[in-house]
Design a protein around this nucleic acid. Structure first.
Lengths: 233, 233
DNA sequence: TTGATAATTCAACGTTTGTTGAATATAGTA
DNA sequence: TACTATATTCAACAAACGTTGAATTATCAA
């Protein structure tokens, strides 16, 4: 019989491939991921049906199941696809900064923040418009009480730990609570920016644009840095 | 025939009552609202079924429809219930501050921010645990690209406009863009706090608690104020 | 070309969904 | 009491849901 492919028995992620053919790497597979990414970012996990995804990707409903397993596995696949590359870029920038330093020197606060934000700016300005959708999906996950733990923990928390360690070196006298709350504020500012709700467009009468991440980025650094210094300095 | 009550023909909000009896004010009605509030805040609009709500409220499935109309109308009813009281408290605190001023004086930045945050702190610390759920629901709406406009516009944008006007008086030389972006950062920090995702608990190893809005609140004021001064001052 | 494997579509399944008409119970008035 | 409007439950509907077995097509090495 045929079609005995990637059907996940219970809820495994990897979709056990057999020999040569890698699942989820074909043309249609990527179209499915792209459409799912956009829709999940806009309407959340429960607000999207498999039929909406397959219709948008111009494939049969069953194909998404064949390649990715259950709907939940597809959601994970969408989230994981860009998570690693994002986290890696972030690590590289942070270590690059560290290498540039002479012995005994520590990074400036602005450098640390910049290293944290820059990859996100790159993502937003990338040619691939999917990155914008992914950032919106990230905002959805970051602010969701149910997804946050299972998705952020595995993919991003470790890198954030490094980021916070670097901050502690800048503010050696600060309490841990102060640093963590300040990071929390920055994280919230970021998440709302990613979400691209269009609210700032409305409130500002068009003078600010949700889509203009460059404007958000350049002002966020001094804003956050000043906040850190006030609370932790 | 019976049961010809509050059935909304198309999608009207008010649920046209007939004479004396007010819909949605009984004991079970409020239980429905409370449960719906909690579930919507946790799982979003699409992540909650009418049956989950009615089960949680220990009533029949049909009762929610009878009192509130369609599911969408119930969602609106939940959101609107506490929106007005929140916005009013905020206005009162802002005007109280203004009255205390002598002629020619303007409010300090901290006072303005405090007037904006205080009602939210009250809400969080209220005896009614429903307020915490509502703040999480607010975070969901604030960060959602699809709900933001239709719900925030009607209920909160006007008050935010007043808040921003007060800020402009503190920073008369600042550009509108700068003030709006700073407000945006503050708004994001707030939203993530409301969401209570538990992430700060995890990252800080339990030293900070998502539920501890008081800790978030006291540090947010100096953090945000310093950021405003850096960017707009 | 043949044969095997992967990719894709087709058709259908058992559930669950929001919603509603009718039946019953409750409360209040005359 | 009887009457009336409201509140609540019961039972069921059509539609949409995620998922899957089987059939069909494409791919590619031998």
């Amino acid at each position: 019989m045929a079609g005995s492919g990637a059907r996940s028995n219970t809820s495994s992620k990897g979709a056990g491939k057999k020999g040569t053919g890698k699942r989820g790497t074909g043309e249609k597979s990527e179209r499915i991921l792209d459409v799912a990414e956009e829709l999940f970012a806009l309407h959340g996990y429960d607000g999207v049906t498999m039929r909406q995804i397959s219709t948008g990707a111009k494939v049969d409903v069953a194909l998404a199941n064949y390649h990715f397993g259950k709907k939940l596995d597809l959601f994970y696949a969408v989230f994981n696809r860009r998570a690693e590359s994002l986290s890696n870029t972030r690590r590289e920038l942070l270590r690059e900064n560290e290498k540039k330093l002479k012995k005994g020197q520590t990074q400036t606060l602005e450098q640390i923040i910049e290293a944290f934000l820059l990859p996100l700016k790159f993502a937003q300005e990338s040619r691939d418009p999917g990155w914008k959708n992914y950032m919106a999906l990230l905002a959805y996950v970051m602010t969701s009480p149910v997804w946050n733990e299972q998705l952020m923990k595995e993919n991003f928390d470790k890198r954030v730990g490094e980021f916070i360690e670097a901050l502690k070196k800048v503010f050696p006298k600060a309490k841990d609570e102060e640093i963590h709350w300040c990071y929390h504020y920055m994280s919230g500012a970021l998440a709302l920016t990613f979400a691209q709700t269009g609210r700032i467009d409305r409130l500002s009468g068009g003078k600010c644009l949700s889509s203009d991440f460059d404007a958000a980025y350049t002002r966020m650094i001094p804003f956050v840095a000043a906040g850190f210094r006030e609370v932790c300095g």
